[in-house]
Simulated assay, not measured.
Amino acid sequence: ISIPPKYAVSQIVGYLKGKSAIHVARQYMGKQKNFTGLHFWARGYYVSTAGHDEEVIRQYIKRHEEIDKKIDQLGLFK
């Protein structure tokens, strides 16, 4: 997507992730309210301002999948 300079990238990404997570919860999980505690998206995001480099994107995704697995494993001990 293209974001006008007057908007912060973090604002747009947060908005898109938030609204899409609510849509998924309503559409596929049958939730209408009380979305607290649900985690659909990973915490981070990738932004490229100079073009697309497929290998960099693949490495980013792989690294964050590994981080997410570690976080999930730590949650088992709570």
Rank of each mutant, 00 (worst) to 15 (best):
I1M: 08
P4F: 07
P5N: 04
V9W: 03
V9R: 04
S10G: 04
Q11D: 12
Q11E: 09
I12K: 00
V13D: 13
V13A: 13
V13Y: 11
Y15P: 01
Y15C: 11
Y15R: 13
L16M: 15
L16I: 15
K17S: 11
K17T: 06
K17G: 11
G18H: 14
S20Y: 15
S20K: 10
S20G: 03
H23Y: 15
H23T: 08
H23M: 08
V24N: 07
V24P: 02
R26H: 09
R26K: 09
R26W: 06
R26F: 06
Q27E: 05
Q27T: 04
Q27N: 01
Y28D: 02
G30C: 00
K31S: 01
F35V: 02
T36E: 09
G37M: 05
L38N: 10
F40D: 09
F40I: 15
F40Y: 13
W41V: 12
A42W: 02
R43K: 13
G44C: 09
Y45W: 11
Y46E: 06
Y46M: 10
S48L: 08
A50K: 06
A50L: 02
G51L: 00
E54Q: 14
E54C: 09
E55I: 09
E55T: 05
V56P: 05
V56R: 13
I57E: 13
R58F: 08
Y60I: 02
Y60F: 10
Y60L: 04
I61W: 00
I61Q: 01
I61E: 05
K62R: 14
H64L: 05
E65P: 00
E65K: 07
E66Y: 04
I67M: 09
D68V: 07
K69E: 02
K69G: 00
K69R: 04
I71P: 02
D72V: 06
D72M: 12
Q73D: 08
L74K: 13
G75V: 01
L76M: 11
L76H: 11
K78A: 14
